[in-house]
Nucleic acid binder design. Structure first.
Lengths: 254, 254
DNA sequence: ACAAAAGTGTTCCTCTTACACCCATGA
DNA sequence: TCATGGGTGTAAGAGGAACACTTTTGT
């Protein structure tokens, strides 16, 4: 007999990223324990168990909605964390008790979500007792949640290079500077503003609006929107400088 | 009560990629059915159930070893396929019967593996009744295995851009032309040989050996090895031309 | 008037692209 | 000697990097 494991429970944990104009943040909640009081220091990613007849994307969506109040968030699966030891005995006992279930093993699937971090959002999450923390300032989370978060961040970085997901972290109308700050925060780099504008406008991915920033004590910046029709076709790659292999090695002939 | 699903079985399916010098291939096996004879046309990716006290990487490694005879293959997780309908009733019944288990649901985790496709390998897989098929020629696989394969290929492409995994598909010593053919096959592009060599040598990722190709009826090509010390630091990105977003948009200052 | 961030051009130089011929080997 | 793929250089143009001042607003 080959000892097939048949009674795993599957959970989903979401790294929900937001951008406040300066820093990349993620939403953390407090661990529930057998003792119904929150443990102040026991922060974790929002997560939960998958239900019968629910797909993983559905579960992730439900969990992200519970944490943010928003439906239809952008969600992307990252990795699975399956170490049989990732949930210790006490934790497992508590999980079974809390849900009224029995299982020998909990495997978790990581997701990240991207939200527009406005006042409504912070008000909602505050009311739920959740906190937005700078990603760079997070050094400890329960269980393997640090691993799940790091993994989510690295997947996010790569996705931003290959698709327009970055804009899901910005308001519909945004300034060039906001986009630049976002990219600088996500990748931990500095960008030359003049060259950035030149290339950005040349690329055609932004549409100019007639609107300007308001109530700022300096020259107000113009607001732009994403030009969605600039995608799906040809040339548009975020050139994450010298991070990776084969720098400029391929060139398509003709 | 929230109907937490606690009795999922978790399987692993591996897209095992190999490169024959011209085409990217993947290893397919024939489906086992209740009828112990193979069904000739029912091809699938090698896969199997995760066992108790086994992590997913361990399961993937075991499955890939079973298919190829090799330990310590390069393996990478791609995505999870969790649709409750992905395994139909008959299939589920057969799976439970075959393994002597009971479960209501089988969720599968995709992996890809990279192997050096030499004669020893083809001999081994042939003896097992498995077949190497050009990725481009695969149009049908059972269940959702086409999805798992497509997903694996797209993850592989991105990984090749960001890390030196391409070399895991080549022999330890290889020619420049082999590397070029590999990249052309994986990305479906054409590369200018003169410019490719120029950039490749300038990048420092190859180490020249004293050896040459042998037994070819043309000028023998020099063999090179991967210069592993060229990684982990600065500039080396495979520039998959104009595939993606923000083409050349970022530039690190200083 | 001051502070603070927006917005704008040019030069230098590197990197990309396009392209054609001779070379070494086995049959 | 022929067929086959290996191996090589250059010139023209595009695109990247570096860099400083003026403008507009709120206080």
């Amino acid at each position: 007999m080959d000892n097939v494991q048949t009674n795993s429970a599957i959970s989903v944990d979401c790294a929900i990223f937001g951008f406040d104009g300066t820093n990349l943040k993620t939403l953390l909640v407090r661990r529930r324990t057998v003792d119904p009081l929150y443990h102040e220091k026991e922060l974790k990613l929002p997560g939960g168990m998958i239900r019968e007849n629910e797909t993983l994307p559905e579960a992730a969506s439900r969990i992200a909605e519970g944490a943010t109040g928003l439906r239809d968030l952008y969600l992307k699966q990252t990795s699975i964390f399956s170490d049989p030891e990732r949930v210790d005995e006490d934790e497992l006992k508590w999980i079974c008790q809390y849900h009224g279930i029995h299982t020998d093993r909990v495997v978790t699937v990581g997701y990240y979500a991207l939200v527009k971090l406005d006042q409504g959002m912070t008000r909602y999450t505050k009311s739920k007792g959740a906190v937005w923390v700078n990603v760079d300032d997070i050094h400890y989370l329960i269980m393997d949640h640090m691993d799940i978060l790091s993994d989510a961040l690295s997947v996010l970085q790569k996705d931003i290079v290959w698709s327009p997901v970055a804009f899901k972290l910005l308001p519909k109308k945004f300034t060039v500077r906001q986009l630049q700050n976002l990219l600088e925060a996500v990748f931990g780099i500095e960008i030359d503003n003049r060259n950035f504008r030149k290339k950005l406008f040349a690329s055609g991915i932004l549409l100019e609006t007639e609107e300007m920033e308001d109530n700022v004590n300096h020259k107000p910046a113009r607001l732009y929107t994403l030009n969605k029709s600039a995608f799906g076709k040809k040339g548009n790659r975020m050139d994450i400088v010298n991070l990776s292999l084969f720098s400029g090695l391929l060139s398509v002939r003709k």
